[in-house]
Write a protein that binds this DNA or RNA. Structure first.
Lengths: 229, 229
DNA sequence: TCAAAAGTGTTCATCTTACACCCATGG
DNA sequence: CCATGGGTGTAAGATGAACACTTTTGA
């Protein structure tokens, strides 16, 4: 359905950088492009914004359509608006980043039967468009934000051990953390619920499980408390 | 020059929240709308993105056209994409915020002869579109960012006293700061140049002038130093 | 019984906070 | 000479960093 406008306007897309946490690596979900431009190249999943849907909604829709993911943490990252980032025409893209726990969600085959795969963020193939720039920015944002907002939990299953949590920070921040100091700090914030459950099926002493107390966190936050690693 | 596209697309605009620092208030520059919709209402300056120009360039262009400002700090804030934020049609807006020192720049009359004026951020008239939301977000961003990035200097003249700098933080963060502790902290970072100049024309002991050493800051930053209030 | 990870406190150094007086200047 | 803001140091408390051994469990 072709349309006419009084003045030209750039096209508008959304792109979603989807992070997942493996045992000892941070991964990103990429999709192999089935059409030109950049056919055969890997890219961050995304698509065009349909007028009448909010840009946020477009991001959620693309996320669902291309990966089957829903109810995940999704936040706007930045808008990329260089006129030559797409060889066809001026396409402005509002980039988002999503956090999900890799184990929980199987990634379904994409509707267009293109293949999707997880890559280590430090070993990513050449990407289409300016997607390397977008990915780099998403990584930096995640590294920054994880230290003063409790978003790391989004990368873990709902019940996790303190060691898993610590490892998460070590992987994202790319530096080792002292075990005792980490536990002291995180527990002193009192935003974790100590569950009456322990890890199953491990070949050593099973660790206690915890969950993030989001309600408690929101209350504390209102009273001026601020989460800091 | 009407244009045809294969699929409909939202329109794209940029909006610039422009902050300026008065003696004891943070101000924002608004423009009175001369046309529908929201004719007569105050709004954040902005305009449509022309295909072929980067979104950043569009923001700079609008800033210059509507206020005469150039070479000011300008950073992308967030993209607002609700379909009903503009009553005419789906208009997605990439919002920016700018920092400038109020004293230095006279704001020229807008090209469309609409009036422009500075308002205290805490005493703003009813705004057009969702501009109240944009302004609120810009304020929060400024309050957050000013504490861990040396952007506050953008609101001051190139040469300033430590008391001016302190007041800046007090105004933005909306809380009093201890004078001695502030000076100790800011000087210990060693990113200020102590000038051989003092304040002129004050009816009391003249304060020493300082300037921000951006070069030094960038070098320190690379070595892992991080500015923190 | 061994391998693997869980869990736990103390000390020292550093940073943050609270706080008050004298000084220089111009009117 | 007085009003106004400029400029300065110290002590106590809080926070962050470094560091090693015992316990539990399943194989």
């Amino acid at each position: 359905m072709p349309v006419k406008y009084k003045y030209p306007r750039p096209a508008l897309t959304v792109d979603c950088v989807i992070f997942g946490l493996d045992d000892d690596e941070l991964k990103v979900l990429l999709i192999e492009r089935g059409i030109e431009p950049f056919e055969g190249k890997w890219a961050i999943p995304g698509g065009f914004v349909v007028p009448g849907e909010s840009v946020d909604a477009a991001a959620r829709r693309e996320l669902l359509e291309e990966t089957g993911l829903k109810n995940v943490f999704l936040e706007q990252l930045y808008t990329f608006g260089d006129p030559d980032r797409d060889p066809r025409e001026h396409v402005v893209s509002v980039a988002y980043y999503a956090l999900t726990n890799l184990a929980g969600h199987e990634i379904k085959a994409d509707t267009d039967a293109r293949s999707a795969a997880w890559f280590s963020v430090h070993d990513v193939p050449e990407l289409a468009f300016d997607h390397d720039k977008i990915l780099e920015m998403a990584l930096r944002r995640l590294q920054g934000k994880v230290r003063y907002q409790p978003i790391g939990f989004e990368l873990l299953p709902p019940k996790f051990t303190l060691t898993q949590l610590q490892k998460l920070y070590e992987i994202i921040l790319e530096k080792p953390i002292d075990k005792r100091n980490f536990r002291k700090k995180i527990l002193s914030m009192e935003v974790l619920i100590e569950l009456d459950e322990i890890q199953q099926g491990v070949a050593h002493r099973a660790a206690r499980l915890y969950s993030f107390n989001e309600k408690e966190y929101r209350q504390k936050e209102k009273k001026g408390f601020s989460f800091e690693l």
